[in-house]
């Protein structure tokens, strides 16, 4: 909009400019906006309060603005405090829980999959919490600070699972997750925290759950992915464009609900599909997506559906080992070349 636009009217509240910010800053802004908007939103987690502001500094300054009452430092008891979040949610609050690393979410597993996920089906009481789970590797942090364990939760009825790949989606999906009346696991991508910047709209830029986006349009093959791997796929697509291969990249954004319509629309257009994610391949989310494609779009396929995931090993620490574990642009490009040549 230009300053010469005569239709411009003053908004009721002072407009805040859209800003360039990191993926991490976008999450922080989403949390802050939602806490200012809704007094029922509160934060729980380890080391999130005070001057410390969390292991990744997502909640820096939050205690000062919102007080310890709404930024609750927890004892190191994920099972206990995720359970407590369910109790708060049953009585109308909207807790946003930070598990320090997605790897540690297993210590709260029963509270999530047995209690929160089943409650609405059993006795129709909503459990509106969000667990923010800093996930993914590539940062040489080893088996217990690098995991992508989203498949555990995608397999659990009653949960929603979100995995944004951009600053805009990180904020927009977080707003929607907090407002959702169901338990939502929000997988943040650690390697993107400070490496990725974009213009993020100010104010309410909520992005609906369960709707994928086309990260890059293309005609020859669909690469279906999410999280940090989206950027590896786009890099592969740029590389392959020089070879005359036109790659479409689908960023799922939500893993549960899964936007199968978007996946099928892309695959029926391109006739080829590669499903890739940083999580290990066996029993991963990609297996489900590949199965959906084969079941629903078999007659459109010009090549087998391929999966590219992490290896079926604990995530190793040392750089050459971790690099060998993870899919990257080079491995994605190689997989695409094989499929296109099929």
């Amino acid at each position: 909009m230009t300053s010469s636009d005569s239709q411009t009217v003053a908004p009721e509240t002072p407009a805040v400019e859209s800003k360039v910010m990191t993926y991490l800053e976008a999450i922080s802004e989403g949390l802050c906006d939602e806490m200012r908007r809704d007094p029922d939103v509160l934060l729980m987690g380890n080391d999130i309060g005070g001057d410390f502001g969390g292991a990744f500094k997502v909640t820096t300054g939050f205690s000062e603005e919102f007080g310890d009452r709404r930024v609750m430092n927890m004892p190191m008891t994920e099972l206990g405090f995720i359970g407590a979040a369910s109790g708060m949610a049953l009585f109308g609050l909207r807790p946003v829980v930070e598990v320090q690393f997605a790897d540690f979410i297993s210590t709260g597993f029963d509270s999530i999959v047995q209690y929160a996920a089943t409650t609405h089906y059993r006795w129709q009481a909503p459990v509106p919490w969000v667990i923010r789970a800093p996930s993914d590797g590539g940062i040489r942090s080893g088996p217990f600070h690098s995991q992508n364990n989203e498949a555990w939760f995608v397999h659990t009825p009653g949960l929603k699972v979100v995995a944004p790949s951009t600053p805009v989606d990180a904020k927009g999906l977080l707003l929607t997750a907090i407002r959702d009346d169901n338990p939502v696991i929000f997988f943040e991508s650690k390697p993107l925290y400070r490496s990725l910047r974009d213009v993020v709209p100010a104010g309410d830029c909520a992005v609906p759950l369960g709707r994928a986006r086309i990260a890059r349009p293309g005609r020859d093959i669909s690469v279906i992915t999410y999280g940090a791997t989206v950027h590896q796929a786009v890099a592969a697509a740029v590389e392959l464009a020089a070879e005359g291969i036109d790659v479409e990249v689908i960023d799922l954004r939500s893993l549960k609900p899964l936007d199968t319509d978007a996946v099928l629309a892309s695959v029926t257009k391109t006739g080829r599909a590669l499903v890739t994610h940083a999580a290990n391949r066996l029993g991963g989310v990609g297996a489900e997506i590949a199965a959906v494609i084969v079941e629903e779009a078999f007659e459109w396929l010009d090549a087998p559906v391929a999966r590219l995931g992490g290896l079926d090993i604990p995530v190793p620490s040392s750089p050459p080992l971790e690099d060998a574990y993870r899919p990257d642009a080079g491995k994605i490009a190689a997989s695409i070349r094989r499929l296109v040549a099929f």
Binding site: L42, R69, L79, G80, F81, I82, G83, A84, A85, S86, G87, M88, A89, L90, F91, G92, L93, P95, D110, S111, Q114, Y115, T118, T119, R122, W123, A125
Partner: peptide, 24 residues
């Protein structure tokens, strides 16, 4: 009334959370 699950101790943190919501 809050419903329970077979993993009985899970009513514990949930009820503590309910109590914390009353304080809040």
């Amino acid at each position: 009334i809050i419903g329970f699950i077979s993993h009985l101790p899970h009513s514990l943190p949930v009820t503590v959370g309910a109590a914390m919501s009353f304080t809040y």
